[in-house]
């Protein structure tokens, strides 16, 4: 049986210039994380639509992780605030559908954050497993 079945499926939203290179670096340095982590990269984390997140849950993802730009965002200095608003809004939608709001998480990741990314994935997986039990 493959791990993809047993470990939680996580959808990560990353950003083209900041967090996605950080995730790439984990690969470059051959630091292992769960193969059931899938990444979609966008220009800016403040552009993630709640309906996409909901779609991911409907399709069977166990968790959604937003690797936000934080202060390095070159578009908007309030990026973190707006991204957070999206999470709050989505969590409301999740409650309505009986999805535990803990299934969504956000953290700022920068372009050299290979290890922090892997740690986040490990922790999040653990949380998601706990939610199942």
């Amino acid at each position: 049986m493959s791990d993809t079945k047993s470990s939680p499926r996580i959808l990560v939203f990353s950003t083209d210039t900041i967090s996605d290179p950080g995730i790439d670096q984990a690969g470059q340095r051959k630091i292992h994380y769960s193969p059931s982590v899938y990444v979609i990269s966008l220009p800016c984390s403040s552009g993630i639509k709640p309906r996409w997140i909901m779609h991911a849950f409907e399709q069977g993802f166990d968790g959604v992780f937003i690797a936000a730009d934080g202060i390095e965002c070159s578009y908007n200095h309030k990026c973190a605030e707006y991204t957070n608003n999206i999470i709050v809004e989505t969590q409301q939608m999740m409650k309505d559908k009986n999805i535990n709001p803990k299934r969504i998480r956000m953290a700022a990741l920068c372009s050299v954050c290979a290890e922090p990314f892997v740690n986040h994935m490990e922790n999040f997986s653990r949380i998601l497993v706990e939610l199942e039990n």
Binding site: T17, I71, E72, C110, S111
Partner: peptide, 12 residues
Amino acid sequence: PTLDCAACITTP
């Protein structure tokens, strides 16, 4: 003074 990551600023 902004404490942003040098790599994130430079690599793009």
